[in-house]
């Protein structure tokens, strides 16, 4: 048991150190990421978003952007019904408060742009 504890602890910290080192060595200069950021977005109305309203086709409008979160829904830490309730809807407030007055983590903030599919068309 003692050996298992010592070995597993050492392996854990070596793995954590390895991930940090990989991030440090592969850090991409900001200018190389710029082209992706300025790609021209498609625009969708809330009515368009509303047609993607179930587990296997789940879009959400968050803070003026439209996200296709179908691929992420199964990986969301909380119970599926919590996130599925917002499929096809304007979900900015749920994103900002997690419906419990708490913002999402910086990690989640970094993850969200991967699922961006377009921009929300502003209605007059």
């Amino acid at each position: 048991m003692r050996t298992l504890f010592i070995l597993s602890t050492i392996i854990f910290w070596l793995a954590a150190g390895g991930v940090w080192l990989a991030d440090y060595l592969r850090a991409t200069p900001p200018e190389q990421t710029a082209p992706a950021a300025i790609a021209a977005p498609r625009e969708y109305s809330l009515a368009d978003v509303a047609t993607h309203n179930h587990q296997h086709d789940c879009w959400m409008a968050i803070e003026g952007q439209v996200y296709d979160l179908t691929g992420y829904v199964p990986a969301h830490p909380a119970a599926p019904e919590i996130i599925l309730a917002w499929c096809g809807k304007e979900a900015s407030q749920a994103w900002q408060t997690k419906t419990r007055g708490r913002p999402h983590s910086p990690y989640a903030q970094n993850l969200l742009p991967q699922y961006r599919t377009g921009k929300l068309r502003q209605t007059p």
Partner: peptide
């Protein structure tokens, strides 16, 4: 790898 470190780093 960047996303991996963000997943692990507590401050993220």
């Amino acid at each position: 790898p960047q996303l991996a470190w963000q997943m692990l780093a507590p401050w993220a």
